[in-house]
Amino acid sequence: MIELREITKILGNHRAVDAVSLVIPDCARVAILGPSGSGKTTLLRLIAGLEKPDAGSITENGILVSSPEYCLPPSERSTGFVFQTAALWPHMTIAENILFGLEDLPENQQTDRLEDLLTRMKIRHLRERYPDEISGGEARRAALARALAPRPSILLFDEPLTNLDRELRDDLLGLITDSVASAQSTMIYVTHDEYEARVVASTIIRFRDGRIEQ
């Protein structure tokens, strides 16, 4: 369970997230819906540990992970993140991108997971390609595979289908829904698109001006 208490983040002179309190149970599928500039991405980054809050706290299963005084490093949180763009490391192949977060595992387990994800994402043929050698849709699949690879308990999606055409978006929405269901992770999905929110989530939170509206 993730619990946010009065969490606040100030960027410049702007309260990007303003005293937000929220409880997200295990395995929940939550969408945060709001317009551009409302602070959704910052909220997601706070949960991932990529930002330290200016006030408030975040706990995971009762353990404090973020406060103004303390921030558990992101790599120690069991969190997967799919960004607005694929954000694949350009100097690594697709396989290396996916394996990057699995280096603590024995080699045979790494290989098993890689093969499984490449198959599920339908990108087996791309394993030795570099990010600049694949299409935008393939890059999004690879980014999803990379986020799923360490089997995180929390999966965060930051408008992952931005700038994709309708067909590709529907295809990837199905893939995301199936992947989250089989991973049994808690999912927080940020979007400004109501359709996407309804498809992927069981709970929709409306966000505006850094606050929960509904």
């Binding site: 980054r45 991932a48 990529l50 490093p73 992101p74 790599s75 949180r77 969190t79 997967g80 993140f81 960004f83 607005q84 763009t85 954000a87 694949l88 490391w89 350009p90 990057f100 977060g101 280096e103 990379r146 360490p150």
Partner: peptide, 19 residues
């Protein structure tokens, strides 16, 4: 964003060295 993506799975020193 590439740095953030790596910070989720690796310690910062590894991110600095590898990414």
């Amino acid at each position: 964003r590439l740095v953030d993506a790596a910070r989720l799975v690796c310690p910062d020193m590894t991110v600095f060295r590898r990414i």
